[in-house]
Write a protein that binds this DNA or RNA. Structure first.
Lengths: 134, 134
DNA sequence: CTTGGACCCTATAGCAACTATAGGGTCAAC
DNA sequence: GTTGACCCTATAGTTGCTATAGGGTCCAAG
């Protein structure tokens, strides 16, 4: 039989665009299992670890918090349960993101308004500063 | 002549919707000047302090970082200078906010797509988890 | 006069999610 | 045999606060 691929932490880092320290941080935070160690105490990873790290990174890229990722990971491992919980998490997060967008839209509009006040004079008459003071 | 109004830190907090600890934090961070103290070592504020705190809070509400607020404050005090710098800061921040919105829009679209995959089965066949793993 | 509650003070630790740094060991190539 | 790219642990720093501990002050009601 084939030897299973043995990956170093640097391999995982390169394969996922994650910093080495961040991977170790995920391990401490309980998002990645502690891998076996070589005789010299180096971490030895298998393809499952890579897969799991990819999952974590993808969730993070989608804006889930580490807590939510932990939740998703634990749900995904209970293969006999309803997937409604996962769907709930995803939908709740989607709603949160949409709320955040609405927030930033208001903010951008205000910034546009303020930026347009500048007429290129001296600070003493700066309309922007004035607007920020109101 | 009238006595100038003497405000406690609690007064400032109430007047601006800021927590007392946050005001002290701003002082340490150099955003507010150290006010004079009473005989019992209580901070004594004047209306200018209130004005300045409002400025800081408004900038923060608009999403400027404390560093940017410091910058805006220092620019606003040099009343003889061109206000182009302030305008530059405002426009740069506006651009950053708009970029963030675009980012979140992409994210929300992805989350909508993923959420729609759920068909209410068991975790083992969960399309969401699958999508997160890709 | 004392007691209760609302205020004020400082200093330190905690939060998220990393990143940076110090101080060390390992290993392969030249 | 030494350079440079790796690996390890542990701790401190980042941002913008918030929370907590442990104390002092002040005023009004009982």
């Amino acid at each position: 039989m084939d030897e299973p691929a043995r990956l170093t932490i640097g391999d995982l880092a390169r394969a996922t665009g994650t910093k080495v320290v961040t991977i170790r941080y995920y391990e401490k935070a309980g998002l990645l299992p502690r891998p076996p160690r070589s005789a010299r105490n180096y971490r030895i990873y298998a393809p499952e670890h890579l897969h799991r790290l990819r999952f974590v990174r993808r969730c993070r890229a989608l804006g889930f918090t580490l807590d939510q990722v932990r939740e998703l990971l634990s749900l995904s491992s209970r293969t006999d349960r309803e997937c409604a919980e996962v769907d709930g998490l995803a939908k709740a997060h989607q709603a949160a993101v949409e709320a955040k967008i609405a927030d930033l839209e208001r903010l951008a509009a205000e910034l546009r308004r303020i930026s347009n006040l500048c007429q290129g004079g001296r600070m003493a008459d700066c309309r922007i500063i004035e607007a920020l003071s109101s």
